[in-house]
Write a protein that binds this DNA or RNA. Sequence first.
DNA 1: GCCGTTTTCGGCCCGACTGTTTTCAGTCG
Length: 635
Amino acid sequence: MMIGAFERLGAAMRRLRVFAVSESRRGAPVARKSLPCRAPVRKSPAGRKMIAFGARFMTNADVARVFNEIADLLEIKGESAFRVNSYRRVARSVGELAEDINEVAARGGLAAIPGVGKSSAEKIQELLDTGRVTVREQLAQEVPVSLLELLRIPGMGPKKAALLWKQRGVDSLDALQAAIDAGGLADLKGFGPKSIEKIRKGIEFLRSSGARTRVGVAWEIAERMRDAVAAMSGVTRVEHAGSLRRGCETVGDLDLLCIAADGPSVIERFTKLPDVKDVLAAGDTKGSVVVEYAPGRSIQVDLRVVPAESFGAAWQYFTGSKEHNVRLRERAVRRGWSLNEYALSQGERIVAAASEEEIYQALDLPWIPPELREDRGEFELTETPLDLVTAGDIRGELHMHTTASDGKFSIEEMACAARERGYEYICITDHTASSAIANGLDAERMREHIRAVRAADAVLDDITILVGAEVDIRADGSLDYDDDLLAQLDWVVASNHYHMSDDRDANTQRALAAIRNPYVNLLAHPTGRIINRREAMPIDIEAIAAAAADSGTALEINSNHLRLDLKDQHARLAAERGACISINCDAHHVSHFDQIRFGVATARRAWIRRAQVVNTWPLKKLRRFVAKKRSAAKH
DNA sequence: GCCGTTTTCGGCCCGACTGTTTTCAGTCG
Ligand SMILES: Nc1nc2c(ncn2[C@H]2C[C@H](O)[C@@H](COP(=O)(O)OP(=O)(O)OP(=O)(O)O)O2)c(=O)[nH]1
Ligand SMILES: [Mg+2]
Ligand SMILES: [Mg+2]
Ligand SMILES: [Zn+2]
């Protein structure tokens, strides 16, 4: 389904619920406390409407949001940075947990979450039970919560925000804007003319940057910037760093690292590149600029310059994540050493600096692939995982469209494009009747389409064209085609496009019903999210993963940079439970095959090995996968 | 507030850039 065409449709069908009881996989029903409803539509930071599922109970993201809020409020109050940090740690841990926090609480597992101790466990429990945390409510009495808006301004931290509030009564972004316009910040200590100008620009940047940037957009800009820096005389190497190198689905900024002897000169030229709209900082070794990549759309780009001998230490530092860096540096400290972006050193003596491999090795660690550097268990590794899936491992695309439904190219054109990429096989999976909006095929047109695909396969050499369909899952979990028709297909993709609801059990049951169908081989984009536009529908990923593993059904990592669905943490859990994964581009256009890198990056972040990915397999093995599920159903 | 192949108490990563601070705090990476 082409993204965008049907988003509104799904939103219209969504309902608010007042109470939900979910069946946990262990059999005990987990009561989810019904909570006051939130508006089903809220504004994304960009000001664009973000479609959300109605609040019925606390989600992991809700808990994370509350703990981050407590941390910000405490910080403005001047609370110990370590204590503040511990709240942020809880927020991060809960936010990225694949398991539903309500279920974790129900089995008494809260305190086992990394960073969650007795005190935080109690607060989470209170939040799940009542929708509130006493500490947060008390803090909100002391500090206006709207003051936290100020923290989103670059360069505005807790100390300055506190000062503005206490000295000038500023308690929101609008109030700050008004104070600046009225000249009300003059003679406030620490706020000279340059600071005020910076804040003004910062507010402007907020408006033009908005939400985190999707990796598909960021990638293109990063490549342009990399080329521009690489073209400078004196620059011998430029690399991606930060979240971009770690393969994250969205990035807050672009981080580039380069080798050059003359840092200040490189930084100066960096700040004068054509697309640079504003310079946030420009020193001897690093610079930060704002790049306008489309009218009214901006992103921050950070460049760090280091000498060649420090490259390894610098790349390690600048790749992060921050949490990974802190763990690694603590490890150095325990050995009586110190690690920074220049070197791993013991006093004056350099232990390692030139390459990442040397640094990790000196700390008794294997080189860790960037996608794994999130402090999610990578410090337990004893050797570099060499079998993580790579883009080169992908042998075929198993989810793609042609002009028969809503694709832009013919069967032959798509097949030739795939062949050019070196793919051994593809499967044409056009939409079915329920997707009338996407020109879905009814049974009769589908039978014709099968003949057309077979004919194309007979004509084209060096690639096998399989025939399949992306079959819509109906409200009751049944499929658009009957089994007789499905049996004629080589590979069947099942998708829920129209019955995404805020009812986790209903969503899960639809997915499970599809997975149980002996002809369904792949559950596509299982949560239906559109990044920055539509939230994931709630699902029981553990139940879905277990059923997929049991039945021999693959779960998708949809590589479209708007989807990346399953997301990393869900995919990791699914693969750990034995489910096979298929990484697809959902190609509607020949150019969409390029998106595979984002799906592969997501899979690597999920610690997925090539053997777990069905479209890295030879065709024969893939056919056995299909045959096995079909024959199991006959016994 | 959390946590433990030297710890249940005492640590908690380390450095760059900015502004008006006459010696460094605040913010960010
Ligand atoms: N040691 C250390 N390194 C940090 C810290 N903050 C950032 N870094 C490093 C690791 C980050 O990946 C890298 C780039 O910083 P960013 O703020 O751009 O973060 P990152 O790119 O990871 O995420 P983003 O998508 O930009 O939000 O700098 C820190 O507090 N300590
Ligand atoms: Mg970054
Ligand atoms: Mg950055
Ligand atoms: Zn599709």
